[in-house]
């Protein structure tokens, strides 16, 4: 190997600083959430305790953290399932040209880059005009899908652009029907990528704020609840909540990534019997 150029070391330092910039604040509130009972929002630490974590489980003067968490969890799972299913369906459809494909593609891009507050306002207005109650599971759900579906579909585009069509041709030559080809050939091949779509679907919904703001109704999701707390809670309980939800996100991300890694490994081990003399 040729020796490292000087720019390598400069950029390596820069990269390390970037990671510190990304994670530093999160780690700081992680540490501060272990403040003693009389601790404040900044250093120094006033003792070390789990006081603020216990406090999370007590009745809060305002709001309903655990109700919000349950709603966010349910909504996240719902959005995840719908995002995965609809992204795969649309991904399959977009492999062939159909009338309106280009228009729909630009609509998906528009959904991604339109300022979120417009979706929130527009959906809120519609429900207001037709006199329906906004609720996280109806208007909130739909608004979040306008954010997660574009991500899901773009991932599917990337997946199908790299998809080797000869597998499908082989299946067809062996007499598989279109549905059998999808079910037994295409879906198993793209399965690890679906983990990625699911991860986006769940986490983007679980953390969504702007599109849910005017569409969640009287029952808050967790991000809305946390934002509400920032205006009237000034104790480290805010940090404890932040640390808990961040840990929860890390666990979700870790689980999904681990699952994807496991599926890929299992495939490379079991996927091919080439050269093993199995006829």
């Amino acid at each position: 190997m040729e020796p490292r150029p000087r720019s390598f070391y400069a950029l390596a330092v820069f990269f390390a600083l970037f990671l510190l910039f990304l994670y530093g604040p999160t780690i700081t509130i992680g540490i501060l959430s272990f403040q003693g009972p009389r601790g404040g929002l900044t250093f120094p630490m006033n003792g070390v305790s789990l006081y603020w974590f216990y406090d999370l489980f007590e009745e809060q003067p305002v709001g309903d953290i655990w109700g919000a968490f349950r709603r966010s969890l349910a909504l996240g799972l719902l959005v995840m399932v719908v995002t995965v299913v609809l992204s795969v369906m649309a991904g399959l459809a977009f492999r062939r040209h159909f009338a309106g494909a280009t228009f729909l593609f630009y609509l998906v891009i528009a959904s991604l880059i339109i300022p979120s507050i417009l979706v929130s306002l527009g959906v809120g207005l519609i429900f207001n005009i037709i006199d329906w109650e906004v609720h996280w599971s109806t208007s909130g759900f739909g608004s979040q899908l306008t954010w997660t579906l574009p991500f899901g579909l773009l991932i599917m585009f990337a997946v199908f652009n790299r998809f080797d069509k000869s597998y499908e041709e082989a299946a067809r030559d062996l007499g598989a029907s279109p549905w059998q080809t999808v079910r037994h050939v295409v879906l198993p091949i793209i399965a690890p990528s679906l983990i990625g779509v699911a991860l986006f679907g769940f986490t983007l919904s679980y953390d969504e704020f702007a599109r849910t703001l005017l569409t969640a109704g009287s029952y808050n999701t967790l991000p809305l609840e946390i934002f509400g707390m920032t205006t009237n809670v000034t104790s480290p309980v805010l940090y404890a909540l932040g640390t808990m939800t961040t840990m929860f996100s890390f666990i979700i991300v870790g689980t999904f990534l681990g699952l994807g890694y496991f599926m890929r490994r299992r495939r490379s081990k079991l996927g091919s019997d080439a050269g093993k003399g199995m006829v």
């Binding site: 999160t26 991000p223 940090y239 979700i252």
Partner: peptide
């Protein structure tokens, strides 16, 4: 994949 709101809050102690 973590919450933007929390990431904003986490600048307070800094």
């Amino acid at each position: 994949w973590t919450s933007n709101i929390i990431r904003m809050i986490s600048w307070i102690p800094f």
